[in-house]
Simulated scan of single mutants.
Amino acid sequence: MKQSELTLIFLKAGMQTTVQDQGRAGLQHLGVPIGGALDKRSAELANYLVGNKQQTPVLEITMMGPEILFDTDALVAVTGAQFDIYIDNKIVKNEEAFHVKSGTIVRFGQLNYGCRAYMAVAGKWNAKKWKGSASPILQAAEATPDSIIKKGSKLKIESAHLNKNGTLDKNTSTPPLANKIRLKVKPGPEFENISRTAIAKFFGQGHLITQDANRMGYRLKTELTALEEKKEMISSGIIPGTVQLTSSGQPIILLNDAQTTGGYPRIVNITDKDLDQIAQLKPGDEIWFSLE
Rank of each mutant, 00 (worst) to 15 (best):
I91G: 04
T260G: 14
H29L: 12
D285E: 10
G109I: 07
G23L: 10
G166W: 11
N112K: 15
Q20N: 11
I270M: 11
M119C: 13
I287G: 04
G204N: 08
Y113A: 10
I267V: 15
L27E: 12
I234H: 06
I85W: 05
L162F: 13
F202A: 01
S102P: 00
I9R: 07
K12F: 00
E190K: 03
A25I: 07
S247L: 11
A46Q: 02
G249V: 06
I157P: 00
Y113Q: 14
A77K: 03
T210W: 05
I148W: 04
H29R: 13
V185R: 03
I181R: 02
I9Q: 05
A226F: 11
I137L: 14
P189I: 12
T79W: 04
Y118A: 08
Y48C: 11
K230H: 05
N171L: 14
E223M: 10
S147M: 01
V243H: 05
P175E: 03
Q54G: 14
F98S: 05
N256T: 08
I157G: 00
W288F: 14
K90Y: 10
G204C: 09
V185C: 11
G31C: 15
L183V: 04
P136V: 06
S153A: 06
P33Q: 14
K282T: 12
I199Q: 15
A46D: 01
A46Y: 00
A160D: 13
F70K: 02
A13L: 01
G263Y: 07
F203S: 01
Q244M: 08
E190L: 00
K184P: 00
A178F: 05
L254Y: 13
S135I: 01
M1V: 15
T174S: 05
F289V: 00
Y113H: 08
F83H: 04
I34R: 13
I234V: 12
K40R: 14
M233N: 11
P251R: 06
L183Q: 07
V92L: 02
M233Q: 09
G206W: 11
A198R: 13
N47M: 09
A46M: 02
E67Q: 11
A13H: 01
A226G: 12
G206I: 06
I194L: 11
A122M: 02
A77H: 04
E96P: 03
T104D: 14
A25P: 09
Q3A: 15
P145V: 03
K150E: 03
Q280P: 04
P57M: 02
T222A: 15
D21E: 07
A160Y: 09
S153L: 01
E229D: 11
A134Y: 01
N256V: 07
L111D: 02
T246S: 15
G80W: 04
K170E: 14
L220Q: 06
A127N: 05
T144A: 01
K150Q: 04
I85A: 05
S173L: 10
A178G: 02
